[in-house]
């Protein structure tokens, strides 16, 4: 039944199609109606162009505004760490003198000529060191070059090292020894 109906439908459409024609007037109408913008050779309808612009204007403006805001925010975030300048050149703190390169151990110092480290240390730090006993050096023995393992023994070993006769002459060493 379906095959019969399908054949009937095809036949119906074929016969009906023979009666439907697009006359020349209709063709002219179609060409004229679709003329603006067709082939891209003719001047497009200004009204249509305006509508097109209006249709695109809003999304484009919105996108531009969003991009501008995002850009501004990114610039602010990017620049905010930069203006915070590094701390202005302050006088060297005492802590700065406590972080010199490791000095030789007392035992080595006994065999070497005294203070070759003057070339390694900054002059200002060195000039301040002998003026007064450096409290940092007394508190943190590793700052003077002693290995950390010797730290607990520092007060008692100080006289020993003084016996060796090299470091004990310094005023700091004497202070420790008195304690």
């Amino acid at each position: 039944m379906d095959d019969e109906l399908e054949a009937l439908l095809r036949d119906h459409y074929r016969r009906a199609a023979e009666e439907i024609h697009a006359d020349p007037a209709l063709l002219r109408r179609y060409r004229a109606a679709a003329r603006p913008g067709a082939d891209g050779t003719r001047t497009p309808n200004p009204l249509g162009k305006g509508l097109g612009l209006r249709r695109w204007a809003l999304p484009v403006l919105a996108a531009a505004a969003t991009a501008a805001v995002v850009l501004a925010a990114a610039m602010l975030l990017w620049r905010s760490p930069q203006p915070a300048p590094p701390q202005p050149a302050a006088p060297p703190s005492p802590a700065a003198t406590t972080t010199p390169p490791p000095a030789p151990t007392p035992s080595r110092a006994s065999t070497r000529p005294p203070v070759p480290e003057s070339t390694a240390r900054p002059r200002s730090a060195r000039s301040s060191a002998p003026a007064a006993p450096d409290p940092a050096s007394t508190v943190r023995p590793e700052a003077t070059g002693n290995p950390p393992s010797e730290r607990p023994a520092t007060p008692r070993d100080a006289p020993h090292t003084a016996h060796d006769g090299s470091v004990a002459d310094g005023p700091a060493a004497r202070g420790i020894g008195l304690e």
Partner: peptide, 12 residues
Amino acid sequence: VQLAYERVARRW
């Protein structure tokens, strides 16, 4: 059909 042609012309 005319409407269809107008739309096709716009995207020809």
